[in-house]
């Protein structure tokens, strides 16, 4: 019985993600595109919940839905708000489609190669422990973690430098 419920929920969220994902690239209104992106990200979070990875799921919501997309909306409002439905279209649809298709192919190739034939048995699991995630990040994956941190810091400093280039010394 529980399995049937899980199947139904999985396919419902799958449909939601697929439709929202397509709408992200086909809608002509940027704000709507951002909102469809929110729906896609929430769908991804629900997939994590179905995989008993609650911590990852809610971090996904907190970071991507709660911060990243809100920042995008913030930027759009400051720059394009009154227009909103401005035509952001250009003639590079084919290039975009080819790039996206290649990316999808490469990612799925790697994923299938890495996990082929593996099946995870969830019966009786309590879900992923936060502790084990923390230990994994700070022992096995500590190098990628640190590299990502430095990259983000560089991006942060870079953004400040670029945005305040014209202002000179204001706060002295």
């Amino acid at each position: 019985m529980a399995d049937t419920y899980l199947q139904v929920i999985f396919w419902a969220f799958f449909a939601l993600m697929a439709i929202a994902g397509i709408r992200v690239v086909t809608t002509r209104n940027v704000i709507h595109a951002a909102l469809y992106l929110v729906a896609t990200l929430l769908g991804a979070a629900s997939m994590y919940v179905l995989l008993y990875a609650e911590f990852v799921a809610w971090v996904q919501v907190l970071v991507y839905v709660g911060a990243v997309v809100v920042l995008m909306l913030f930027g759009l409002m400051l720059t394009r708000a009154p227009i909103g439905s401005a035509n952001f279209d250009n003639n590079q649809r084919l290039v975009g489609a080819v790039c996206a298709g290649l990316l999808f192919a490469v990612t799925s190739f790697i994923m299938v190669g890495a996990f082929e034939g593996q099946e995870i048995d969830f019966t009786g699991t309590e879900g992923t422990k936060v502790q084990s995630i923390g230990e994994a990040i700070f022992s096995i994956y500590v190098l990628p973690f640190e590299i990502v941190s430095v990259l983000l810091l560089a991006a942060l400093v870079g953004a400040v430098v670029i945005s305040r280039r014209d202002e000179g010394r204001v706060d002295s």
Binding site: V38, W58, V61, G66, A67, L73, E126, V130
Partner: peptide, 25 residues
């Protein structure tokens, strides 16, 4: 009783931003 309850509380709060932002736009 989620084992990540505090995180859930923060995540729900972060979704709440949308109401105000979208209403404004």
């Amino acid at each position: 009783d989620l084992n990540i309850g505090v995180l859930f509380f923060l995540a729900a709060g972060s979704i709440g931003v949308y109401g105000v932002v979208l209403a404004g736009w």
